[in-house]
Nucleic acid binder design. Sequence first.
DNA 1: TACGATTCGATCGCGCACGATCTTTATCGA
DNA 2: TCGATAAAGATCGTGCGCGATCGAATCGTA
Lengths: 150, 150
Amino acid sequence: MRTEHMLCLSLHAASRAMTRAYQPLLDALGLTYPQYVVLVALWDEDAQPVGAIGRRLMLDTNTLTPMLKRMETAGLVRRTRSPRDERQVIVSLTEAGRAMEARAAHVPARIVAATGLSPEALRDLNARVSALKDSLAREDREREDRERED
Amino acid sequence: MRTEHMLCLSLHAASRAMTRAYQPLLDALGLTYPQYVVLVALWDEDAQPVGAIGRRLMLDTNTLTPMLKRMETAGLVRRTRSPRDERQVIVSLTEAGRAMEARAAHVPARIVAATGLSPEALRDLNARVSALKDSLAREDREREDRERED
DNA sequence: TACGATTCGATCGCGCACGATCTTTATCGA
DNA sequence: TCGATAAAGATCGTGCGCGATCGAATCGTA
């Protein structure tokens, strides 16, 4: 089993290469890549509880809470307890967070260009990678279920 | 731009899902996933300098040095200065590191099964993801070259 | 109504990724 | 041969990913 043939390595390396591709663009906006991703989720739908963001991005609160606090300090989001369910913390965009959408509007096209792929090829690859993720996640869930039976 | 359509997110999530798929198998061996990957590289070719491992895995010494030290503490590898070039640190397998290859022999098949993909589909996806990685890396190199001209 | 179970988020600790900077050793050109 | 330059690792700081654990709010059910 040579390193070049392992899909896990390609995925890992491609993911990090993707992050590096975003980096110079996001640096100018004072964002990290994961923070940008959280903003994308909030631009799509504002005022989400932490858990909803986590399910969307496959991240747990132990990652999100410190990150959201940093973003709150940076003035991008607000964190407020829901009055209807005091357990939930609703994350919503500030004016600066909303304004960032326009400032980052040029980012996706630059990334698409850097991939060197056609829109169709991108969609196709995205579908395959996403399906792979789902297979692995399902396998993981089933393993956890088996362990819970013990 | 909705979150479901972004390839960067799929890649990131798939990469982490892959790590989670390895985890229960590697936990039993006392390895982390990146440590396993380093071992794979050394099983393929023993006694490599730190830099060679880094080029193979796209990792820099600021990641590798602490990791290799942990692996040395765990008794998996040895780190020795090359007598021919005192700058180089040669990483080589210990007996335990070599023995780990047999103990981990069942891992790749399990992962392939978890992906739910045929060997051909796996090879194809690997090739595409790898090509994407190369495109992004090339773009990144060219950007750095442009900046160096300033 | 009361109480055990569940849900939601926060916290802690560790390992990895990576930019920036430093030290040591090797190499190359004048 | 000497000094500038380059190359190989090490170190430091910060942010993210995640397992484990905790506290508080809510829900389900007897």
